Amino acid sequence: GLPEGWEMRFTVDGIPYFVDHNRRTTTYIDPRTG
Rank of each mutant, 00 (worst) to 15 (best):
D13V: 06
G5R: 04
P31R: 00
H21T: 11
G5P: 01
V19L: 09
R24F: 09
F10N: 03
E4I: 11
E4F: 12
T33K: 08
V19Y: 15
F18I: 02
R32F: 07
R9G: 06
M8E: 05
T25N: 12
V12F: 11
T27D: 07
W6S: 01
W6A: 02
W6V: 07
T25F: 14
D30A: 00
G14Q: 07
R9N: 07
H21A: 08
R24M: 14
R23D: 13
E7V: 08
G1P: 15
I15K: 11
F18A: 00
L2M: 10
M8V: 09
L2G: 04
G34Q: 14
Y17M: 08
G34Y: 09
M8S: 02
R24N: 15
T27Q: 11
F10M: 11
G34H: 12
N22W: 07
E4N: 12
V19G: 01
V12E: 14
T11G: 11
G34A: 14
Y28P: 12
T27F: 03
N22T: 11
E4V: 11
R9A: 08
N22G: 09
R24D: 14
V12P: 14
Y28H: 15
V12M: 11
H21E: 08
E4M: 09
D13G: 10
T26S: 11
P3K: 05
G5V: 02
T11H: 03
T26G: 08
N22S: 10
W6L: 04
W6F: 07
M8T: 04
N22D: 09
I29W: 12
I29N: 09
P31L: 01
N22P: 07
G34F: 14
Y28D: 13
M8H: 02
F18H: 00
H21Q: 10
V19K: 03
G1Y: 10
E4D: 13
R24Q: 15
G5E: 05
F10S: 06
I15F: 08
R32I: 07
G5H: 08
M8N: 00
T25K: 15
Y28N: 14
N22I: 15
P31C: 14
P16V: 12
T11M: 02
W6Q: 01
V19E: 08
V19H: 05
R24T: 08
T26W: 15
L2I: 07
R24L: 10
G5L: 04
H21R: 08
T33E: 12
P16N: 05
G14W: 03
E4R: 08
D13L: 10
G34V: 14
R9P: 00
I15T: 12
E7D: 05
D20E: 06
E4G: 09
T26L: 14
E4H: 12
T26F: 14
T27M: 05
P3R: 05
R9Q: 08
P31Q: 03
P16H: 06
P31G: 01
V19M: 08
N22Y: 11
W6Y: 07
P3G: 05
R32K: 04
G34E: 14
G14S: 04
G14F: 02
N22A: 12
R9T: 05
V12H: 13
R23W: 07
D13W: 07
G1A: 15
T26P: 07
W6G: 03
D13F: 08
D30Y: 01
D20R: 02
Y17F: 11
R9K: 13
D20K: 03
P16D: 02
G34K: 11
F18M: 00
F10E: 03
R32L: 07
T27P: 04
F18Q: 00
V12I: 14
I15L: 11
R32Q: 05
R32W: 07
T26R: 09
R9D: 04
G14R: 06
F18D: 01
G14L: 05
Y28T: 15
E7R: 01
T33I: 14
G14P: 00
P3Y: 04
I15W: 11
D13A: 13
Y28R: 13
M8G: 02
H21S: 10
V19D: 04
I29S: 07
D30L: 00
I15V: 12
W6E: 01
D20Q: 06
G14N: 09
Y17E: 08
R23H: 14
L2A: 03
R9V: 07
P16I: 10
T11N: 11
Y28F: 15
P31I: 02
M8R: 08
I29H: 12
W6H: 01
L2H: 01
R9H: 10
F10L: 10
T25A: 07
F10G: 01
E4P: 14
T33V: 12
I29F: 10
G1M: 14
H21M: 11
R32M: 06
P31V: 02
T11P: 01
P16F: 05
T11V: 00
R23P: 03
G14H: 07
G5I: 04
F10A: 03
D20M: 02
D30I: 00
D30P: 04
Y28Q: 13
G5A: 04
G14I: 00
P31A: 01
T26N: 08
T33P: 10
I29Y: 09
D13T: 13
N22V: 15
T26K: 15
T26Q: 12
L2S: 03
P16Y: 05
P16G: 06
G1K: 14
T27H: 11
P3L: 04
D30H: 02
P16S: 05
V12S: 14
T33L: 13
T27E: 07
G1W: 11
D13N: 13
T11E: 05
I15G: 02
D30R: 00
I29Q: 13
T25I: 15
E4K: 11
G14D: 08
Y28L: 15
G34R: 08
R24P: 05
P31D: 02
D20Y: 04
F18S: 00
G14E: 05
Y17G: 03
T25R: 11
D20P: 02
D20W: 03
P3T: 04
P31K: 00
G34L: 15
D13S: 11
G1T: 13
Y28G: 10
D30F: 00
R24H: 15
V12L: 12
E7H: 04
R23I: 06
G14M: 06
P31S: 01
E7T: 06
I29E: 15
Y28V: 12
R9S: 05
T26Y: 15
E7S: 06
P31H: 02
R32A: 07
G5N: 08
G5M: 05
L2R: 01
F18W: 14
E7L: 03
F10R: 07
M8Y: 01
R23G: 15
F18Y: 10
T27A: 05
P31T: 02
T25Y: 14
I15Y: 08
V12W: 12
R9Y: 10
V12R: 10
R23V: 07
I29T: 10
R24Y: 10
I29D: 14
E7N: 02
V19Q: 04
G34T: 13
G1E: 15
I15P: 05
F18V: 01
E7M: 03
P3H: 04
